[in-house]
Simulated assay, not measured.
Amino acid sequence: MNTKYDGPIVDAHQHFWALARRHHPWLAPGVRVPHRYGDYEAIKRDYLPADYRRDAAAHDVVATVYVEAEWDPATPLDETRFVTALAREHGLPNAMAAQAWLDAADVAEVLAAQSRFELVRSVRHKPAHAHASSGNTLMSNGRWRDGYAQLAQYGLHFELQTPWHHLREAAALARDFPDTMLIVNHAGVPGNRTASTLHGWREALAPLAARPNTVVKVSGLCEAGQPWSVEANRDVLGTLHELFGAQRLMFGSNFPVDGLFLSLDALIDGFKTLVSAWSAAEQRAFFHDTATRVYRPVDLSNPSARTPR
């Protein structure tokens, strides 16, 4: 008999923003950048800890991980200061994936500065699309890889968001830098749910699964023009469970972005249904233990408060 999880949750992938500050170019009025979800105008509104707590009220979310949100790249440390201030005032978030452009001239200084913040556990720099001349992304660029090589020095993980057909480059990255944990965002971005796409996505993920320094965030699984549903994601969860095991998977809401498709309550409840056939220990790993191990959440607002262990 399947039993739905009712324990503590660490949301390993979410965002906050205060748009009056105009620090997110893609969220500015009148701006529309290409987005895999299509029209994202509905999320051009403030989203802060009180909003998240309201949306998650039906579930026992004990900690969250803020992921950089395309803040103005000229001032990446200002995003970290903004997030740290939120954490001190509101108790959320409890860990952070900060912005750092790995091919920038000042990457060493930025990584060193980011690593000194109490919440920062990782950095993200999307490697963009393949260059027409080589078919490769920045993951194969020497200057970018030189920046990546510095992550271990500062004890930082790397957050990878890239379409699934670039994941073989990611497997080479994990192989070449075994001391750096590579966190695959949005389940490797499978895209649509056609049989051919899911087959290609699985084949691309398999080499990453063979690398022990990789984990996967099961987040951002919505599709433009399609409603989110349990059935649409059942094969995705099954494949991830088979390849990585629950101890290398973690839940992420991608809120407020996935709020374009459904409520946070419905999203969490849907994932609880998707993993309900897993053992109790596996469900807890997926919703809590993996993220706790990877991100070591803290409560900056109350150092004596209970934090996940």
Rank of each mutant, 00 (worst) to 15 (best):
H131F: 12
T75Y: 11
F261E: 08
L260H: 05
K272W: 01
S253C: 06
Q226D: 06
A12V: 10
V65L: 01
N94L: 03
G155I: 04
Y295V: 09
A280N: 04
E282H: 11
N192G: 15
H125Q: 11
I9F: 00
D235C: 10
V230T: 12
F82S: 07
R175Y: 08
C222R: 09
L205K: 09
D146K: 12
A291G: 08
A195K: 09
R145K: 13
H90C: 12
Y148P: 05
T273G: 06
V67M: 01
A291S: 11
H129P: 12
H157D: 10
W17P: 01
V62I: 05
H24W: 15
Y154H: 15
L92A: 13
A210M: 10
L86M: 10
A187I: 09
G155T: 10
T307M: 01
N136H: 15
E118G: 14
A87N: 02
P73K: 02
L243T: 03
Y154T: 03
E89P: 00
S133P: 04
A232G: 12
F16Q: 09
Y5S: 04
A195E: 15
T80Y: 02
M250V: 08
A20P: 03
A85G: 10
Y295P: 09
A100W: 06
D179S: 15
W17T: 00
F255E: 05
E282N: 11
S219V: 00
R306W: 15
A291V: 10
T290G: 07
F117C: 02
H35G: 04
S276R: 07
F244P: 06
R45W: 12
E79F: 04
T273M: 14
E68Q: 14
D106S: 08
P34A: 11
N233M: 08
P25F: 07
P190A: 03
Y66Q: 02
G238S: 03
R21D: 14
R116M: 08
M139F: 13
Q247L: 07
G225Y: 12
G91C: 04
E169T: 06
V236A: 09
S263Q: 10
S229A: 08
W278K: 05
A305N: 03
Y52T: 00
V257N: 02
V33T: 13
V189L: 15
V67G: 06
M181K: 09
P207E: 11
D51E: 07
R168Q: 13
L119S: 02
L198A: 07
S122A: 15
V110P: 09
D299N: 13
D60Y: 07
V236R: 01
A281N: 05
L151W: 11
T307D: 04
S279V: 07
V83A: 02
M250T: 02
W144R: 07
A105C: 09
T137A: 01
K4E: 13
W26N: 08
A56T: 12
W278V: 06
M250S: 05
L264M: 14
Y5T: 01
G155K: 06
D6M: 13
A20R: 15
A206M: 11
L208G: 08
F286C: 07
F287N: 01
R143D: 09
W228E: 10
H23C: 14
H165M: 11
T194A: 14
W17R: 01
A50N: 13
D258C: 05
P190Q: 00
N2F: 12
V10R: 05
D299Q: 10
N141W: 12
L160M: 14
Q114Y: 07
L198K: 00
R284Y: 03
V216F: 10
A246E: 04
Q161R: 12
P297K: 02
